[in-house]
């Protein structure tokens, strides 16, 4: 069983929902990332999503665009991100790590090389935002051969046939993009998300995570009642940006926000059992 599947199973047994923080690797500088990963785990993160910096992050709003720019000033490459995961694994072998990024750095490295080296570094899943299932056979195949889960997005615009198509190639969990827009957009409509999740669950047994537009503990709590995982990114990256000159202060704020979300989610899920 993959580390991701094992984690979701363990959470389910305890009636708890997964909290998945996203940070851009190397933001604001490379030395900040591994310590922050450990601190996020201590604050209640169940899975870590690590953004691979890209020069043209088309699906991201300004917060994550600027995080990419900060990391790229230090030339943080996909190769470097794999090294960071390897370093994290020296002290943590349980927490799943998912890479999230764009296809071009993967194309340059080569699908087979990425799959092999990601598995060696201890990466559990790879989500390439601009790779829909129709184009994914080769990369998804390489990842699966090396025991790495290809993670796919679903969106408010995904009709039933597309949901079925995604569930056929996806592994680990599926990531439901809660709104039409880019990361860090306004707030999501929890009722609309709930309706769509019902449709998704008819097509797949995989756990469903929800992200885009979750910026505070209250929204995280409401989403945790209907989803298996809550993904939070821009709300954390904003804190890192605010303290780009003092990364330790940024890390403290990130873990505070995360700990607040953790508490709110746990209260919500114990108050109203699913």
């Amino acid at each position: 069983m993959s580390r991701i599947a094992a984690r979701f199973e363990a959470l389910k047994a305890r009636g708890r929902k997964a909290l998945i923080p996203y940070i851009t690797a190397g933001d604001p500088e490379p030395g900040n990332t591994v310590p922050l990963m450990h601190e996020m785990v201590a604050a209640g993160a169940d899975i870590i999503e690590l953004g691979v910096p890209f020069s043209d992050p088309m699906a991201d709003g300004p917060v994550i665009q600027q995080a990419c720019e900060r990391a790229l000033r230090h030339r943080v490459s996909l190769r470097k991100v794999l090294e960071m995961v390897g370093e994290f694994r020296r002290d943590n072998i349980e927490t799943p790590v998912v890479l999230m990024g764009y296809l071009n750095p993967v194309e340059i490295m080569g699908y087979e090389t990425l799959a092999r080296d990601a598995a060696r570094a201890g990466v559990d899943g790879v989500l390439t935002v601009d790779l829909p299932p129709e184009e994914s056979a080769e990369l998804a195949g390489a990842l699966k051969r090396h025991g790495v889960d290809p993670i796919f997005l679903l969106a408010p615009t995904s009709h039933e046939a597309r949901i079925r198509g995604v569930s056929e190639v996806a592994a680990g969990f599926v990531y439901y993009v809660s709104l039409k827009g880019v990361t860090g957009a306004a707030t999501l409509d929890v009722d609309a998300v709930a309706q769509k999740l019902a449709l998704i669950r008819r097509q797949t047994d995989l756990p469903v995570g929800v992200g885009f537009g979750i910026s505070d503990a209250e929204t995280a709590a409401r989403v945790s009642r209907i989803a298996d995982a809550v993904v939070v990114g821009s709300a954390l990256v904003k804190r890192i940006a605010a303290h780009a000159d003092d990364p330790a202060a940024g890390r403290r704020e990130v873990t505070q926000v995360l700990a607040g979300m953790r508490r709110a989610m746990d209260q919500a899920t114990t108050a109203t059992p699913a």
Binding site: M58, A59, L103, V129, D130, L131, P132, E134, E135, F152, L153, L154, A155, P156, T157, S158, H159, R162, V166, V177, K180
Partner: peptide
């Protein structure tokens, strides 16, 4: 060529 976009744009 192809279609390399995020899922939200596939249906459109």
């Amino acid at each position: 060529g192809g279609r390399f976009v995020s899922e939200t744009l596939m249906e459109p």
